[in-house]
Simulated assay, not measured.
Amino acid sequence: MTSDLPARMLRLLSLLQTRREWSGTALAERLGVTGRTIRRDIDRLRELGYPVAGTTGHAGGYRLASGTAMPPLLLDDDEATATAVALRTAAGHLTGMEETTLRALAKLEQVLPHRLRAQVAALQQTTATIDWAPSGPRTAPAALALLAIACRDHETVTFDYTPRGGAQAPRRVEPHHLVASGGLWYLLAHDTGKNDWRIYRLDRITDPTPTRHHFTPRPVPDDDPAAYVAGKIATAPACYRAIATVHAPAETLRRRTWALADRIQPLDENTCTVDCSSNHLTGIPQTLAALDTDYTLDADPDVLDHLRTVAHRALQATT
């Protein structure tokens, strides 16, 4: 039982920060006090300026609502270190977050204990990040945070989604997992309208909105969200289409470009097609250069424009 009032208040605040909503009974069990004590402690937090919202009824409970300022976070040593390291790496995959993450990191480092500050500094000084596609699509941090909470709390969300080459349409889904791959974020969810599993790219999601309707999680296909998403996106259409018809035998190309072996299809003994499509424009010229032979190209207009720009730069550099 947490009998010391200041310690119990800090513990209560910490618990409220870990879930979207807590029942009064669950909080009382965690703190080893009565429901009446919880209600009094919630009132004390409100008097201190913490925006704790309450709901009534069978499914009622408490949640830390949005306020004029974010309340202090209570982090243990591992959480503080993980947060500092994550701030250093997050900017590369989120929209417009470079300056924001540095400000947040400066605030965190200012209050870290000396022992943790030294650990974080060592990690920052000895860690580098390679961004293979700096011009690729980015994910809005607000959408990422909202969907992460919905996955954790098993809360149905709605949003508008724009598939590649398709029209925007509304979706209502049960979100299960977020998966990061190659600078992109994916949401694995069960689409209630289609009654099937779907994978959504976060940079194509607009206006995600929680519904406050909670669901019972379904078993994830293959029991491995990352493996399932990886298998699906490997066969999904890429952002930028580029199909080369190459004047060389398929077997020759397979030996020359081993990484594309499964994307090479023979047309006859001396000709084949190579699927050079990619989610990143910058990778397509490198793939085409690796063919090292003559070819014709069927590609999206954006791909052709990018190749002309790359060729012009190369020509200027050699004259």
Rank of each mutant, 00 (worst) to 15 (best):
H176G: 08
D222I: 02
R164H: 11
P51G: 05
T245A: 10
G32W: 00
E99F: 02
P266K: 05
I205C: 12
G54D: 05
L267V: 12
R11W: 02
A122V: 04
L297R: 03
S278P: 05
G54L: 02
E47D: 15
R44P: 02
D43P: 05
R255I: 02
M97R: 09
V52M: 08
V246L: 07
L10I: 01
R218P: 01
V303F: 02
P51N: 10
V173Y: 07
T282Y: 06
Y62K: 03
V310Q: 14
L291N: 05
P137W: 06
L146I: 11
D131P: 07
D262P: 07
L307E: 08
L12Q: 02
G60P: 09
W258G: 09
D160S: 15
R263W: 10
G32F: 00
P225S: 12
K194M: 08
G182E: 09
L94I: 10
R117S: 09
P237V: 06
R313W: 12
D191C: 14
A236V: 08
Y240R: 06
P170Q: 00
G283Y: 05
L304R: 12
H312V: 12
T235Q: 13
P163A: 13
Y186V: 04
P225W: 00
M1G: 14
T55G: 13
P175N: 13
L74R: 03
W132C: 12
L75M: 12
H312G: 11
T101W: 02
A242V: 03
T25P: 04
A290T: 09
A28Y: 00
